[in-house]
Design a protein around this nucleic acid. Structure first.
Length: 484
RNA sequence: UCCUCCUUAGCUCAGUUGGUUAGAGCGGCUGACUGUUAAUCAGUAGGUCCUUGGUUCGAGUCCAAGAGGAGGAGCCA
């Protein structure tokens, strides 16, 4: 029987060519509109953002069945596809029989055929995939996952699985979640009265990973080009629309790439993904585009974005990212209107300060009006593993900044010279003892190499136009929230 | 973690200088309707005004603490 079932995407794709075919469709009721003579049911099975119109004639379908077809109910509908007499669709399915697979009591079912706020839908994260918006977002999330693997595979990269549980805490990328099997109420103690992690599961302190980069470097120095794609965890108490405690990150790492090669790959990568979405998920993007336009109608003119979602995506595909050094950025910012008129909360005067969100936003959204790659940062504001430049002041680091999202990619050429690396680690108080395996790659057959990390959810935000990172991952993990 | 704002019906929100019985739209329910597009029309039910304490003759409204949420900042991806 299963082979008679058509996905709604297939029905709509065939359109008029499918008229006359006998099919079974299964899905969830979005809306039902009825009169004495005929009922129209909008059915959605998640295969596409679009619905299939089911026509239920009370002479054909029993009254008790019709009464149970409420918003949210799950149906199996059998019939012969027909050209639609109405305006909104080419084909529809006049039902010969309808089986109720699952009832949904309309007095209790929380999703109504109306607009809901994203805040409300977050509280019912178990049901929100049934809405048009979240269906589109999660389909695009899948699309990007697939396209990422395809992009790297086409270029001869290998997917490297870096560990989720890590024994090193020297990566310096943020607060970590501890992994332990010790009894929190009664942990074994050392003679000094400290918790004795020697008796813990792994025989040492372990945490959830904050980055797969160091492991990716090990892979690159053997397989040339690798990438990781997995969950990462930060125990930071970050309460913003751009941070999660559990998020997914893609970290390519390439032997024999310098910073220029690295920046080129980053741009090519993002453009490839956007193009993939535009080419293959036009329906979902069109829906999200319209959703955003409707949303912005209620906003003041100055708060509306200058480009629609689709225009923004096309713009990124068509234009090179602007590449400027940190030093050039400081000059632009120093001479900018908001700096001179003291509109910035943090005024720019000296070389060497870290750029704040307001500065990055000015460069991307006001000055260049396109994605910007900033590179060659002062070494004192960047990580120990970044390659020192000849000027002795900067490191070969780069950040890709996107409108509305901020930093979407952070990367660098890595320090491959053992003495320089050891010197930086000493300056930054990073114990060599815990990083012995990392240092050995510099000791044995070291090579120039580069890589970057891109936050998967931030990418999805850009692709879908969603404003809150909690709405681009099915089950967001944020401080004080691990429901579902 | 810091700053600002918010919490009233299932949802989205009004609620005046503190005053008697807290409102609307949508959704639900009942009915009408010859093919609808989040259908339309008529009727109807539905409230611990986030919690606790305080001020007051009287608190949805004022004050304090707590809880939850949002926006911004920091950290970063």
């Amino acid at each position: 029987m299963q082979n008679l079932r058509w996905k709604i995407k297939q029905v709509l794709k065939e359109g008029e060519a499918a008229v006359g075919k006998s099919v079974v469709v299964k899905g969830w009721v979005r809306t039902k509109r009825g009169s004495k003579n005929v009922n129209f049911i909008a059915l959605n099975d998640g295969s596409t953002v679009r619905n299939l119109q089911i026509v239920a004639d009370p002479e054909q379908i029993a009254e008790d069945i019709l009464g149970r077809i409420n918003t949210g109910a799950c149906l199996a509908v059998t019939g012969i596809l027909a050209a639609s007499q109405g305006q909104g669709q080419a084909v529809e399915l006049p039902a010969e029989s309808i089986e109720i697979l699952g009832d949904a009591d309309p007095e209790e079912y929380p999703l109504q055929p109306k607009k809901h706020s994203f805040e409300f839908l977050r509280e019912i994260a178990h049901l929100r995939p049934r809405t048009a918006t979240f269906g589109a977002v999660f389909r695009l999330r899948h699309a990007m996952t697939f396209a990422i693997h395809q992009f790297f595979h086409e270029r001869g990269f290998f997917n490297l699985h870096s560990p989720i549980v890590t024994g090193s805490d020297a990566e310096g990328a943020g607060e970590m979640f501890r992994v332990t099997t010790l009894d929190p109420k009664n942990p074994p103690l050392t003679e000094e009265g400290e918790v004795d992690y020697g008796q813990d599961f792994f025989g040492k302190e372990t945490n959830l990973t904050v980055s797969g980069q160091l492991e990716a470097e090990l892979g690159a120095l053997a397989l040339s080009d690798v990438y990781t794609f997995g969950p990462t965890f930060r125990a930071e108490n970050s309460n913003t629309s751009r941070h999660l405690a559990e998020f997914w990150m893609i970290e390519p790492e390439m032997a024999f790439y310098d910073l220029d090669d690295n920046m080129s790959l980053a741009q090519e990568f993002v453009q490839y993904l956007v193009r993939f979405a535009l080419d293959n998920y036009a329906d979902d993007l069109a829906f999200l585009n319209q959703r955003q336009l409707d949303e912005e109608k209620n906003k003041k003119k100055e708060e509306r974005s200058d480009m629609s979602l689709l225009e923004r995506l096309q713009f990124v595909v068509d234009n090179d990212f602007e590449r400027i050094t940190y030093t050039e950025a400081i000059e632009i910012l120093r001479n900018s209107k908001p700096n001179k008129k003291k509109k910035f909360q943090f005024l720019i005067d000296e070389w060497g300060v870290d750029l704040q969100s307001e500065h990055e936003r000015f460069l991307v959204e006001k000055h260049f009006k396109k994605p910007v790659i900033l590179y060659n940062y002062p070494k004192q504001i960047k990580a120990f593993y970044m390659r020192q430049n000849e000027d002795d002041k900067t490191v070969a680091a780069m950040d890709v900044l996107f409108p509305g999202i901020g930093e979407i990619i952070g990367g660098s050429q890595r320090e491959e010279r053992l003495d320089k690396l050891q010197q930086r680690m000493a300056e930054m108080d990073i114990p060599e003892k815990e990083m012995w395996w990392y240092l050995e790659t510099r000791k044995f057959g070291t090579a120039p190499h580069s890589g970057f990390g891109i936050g998967f959810e931030r990418l999805i935000m850009f692709i879908t136009g969603m404003q809150n990172i909690r709405d681009v991952i099915p089950f967001p993990r944020t401080p004080q929230n691990a429901e579902f």
